[in-house]
Design a binder for these strands. Sequence first.
DNA 1: ATCAAATATATGTATATACATATATTTCAT
DNA 2: ATGAAATATATGTATATACATATATTTGAT
Lengths: 148, 148
Amino acid sequence: MNNKYDELDYIIQFCSCANIRKAARTVTQAFEKQMQSTGLKVTQYYMLVNIARHKEITVSELGEIMLLEQSTATRNINILKNNGYVSITKAKDDLRTKYISITDLGLEKLEEATPIWLNIQTKIEDNLGKDKFNDLIKSLNILQESIE
Amino acid sequence: MNNKYDELDYIIQFCSCANIRKAARTVTQAFEKQMQSTGLKVTQYYMLVNIARHKEITVSELGEIMLLEQSTATRNINILKNNGYVSITKAKDDLRTKYISITDLGLEKLEEATPIWLNIQTKIEDNLGKDKFNDLIKSLNILQESIE
DNA sequence: ATCAAATATATGTATATACATATATTTCAT
DNA sequence: ATGAAATATATGTATATACATATATTTGAT
């Protein structure tokens, strides 16, 4: 590096963490804005999708497939529960375990939000172009694998 | 789509928001882990870099260049201030405005953390390969531009 | 000069996130 | 059968984030 400012400029421009976090903020806000009418946050929507995909799923399983810390999973699930979108039942064979399932109200919300999700998602895919979009997803996956 | 589950699977696999957020979590944790010894969070480090880059910068300017909501900027700055890494002075010509500058202690922290940052950053760049890394950064930027 | 509008920052509230630790329950070695 | 270890979830604490709103100050129209 030539001098201190060049180094700072390099960090500012290329920090992989800051770049990804910034992109995450931007994309999140775009989704939030469009989904606002549903009252669902995009994170809640995505979690609901994952819960709907499985008839019943435990807190920790959900955490694992979504790569969320267990305590984060617990807290995010509770928000869905408080809104009546999921129900929680104790497993009979193991009282520590809790099964999460989507409720009818949750399914309604899901159906309300999915067209909106599709709309933004399609716009993003179109704006980037299919190739660049696929590359992006691939790069993000490789990035994560390269870290573990 | 063939059926409901195919649609859910599509969302789960390709949601641009969830993909980016997941990558952000993973990368953030990698940085946090390595930087733990410094007591600096990666977000704090990056903000400190941005503050150091400018002799004096206002809260809102910092928010603008980092693409952070003003209230988020305020709160993140306060954490740095409470740790003594930045000082805050009121502008004499406009008492609403506050100038943020890095302190000596902040500079020390910065110098302590930068080699660690460089280490992780280099590892990530190397693991992905220069081309893929550059593509990723480019894709993230295009993505954001395509949204605004 | 005054008062409304604009601007800069702060605060209230809520979600998303993780780490450390606590609690409840099950499993396993003896 | 019992107690230690393992496991599943919850809670305490802290940061990062945004939106809505409040507060303080400046600017600008009259």
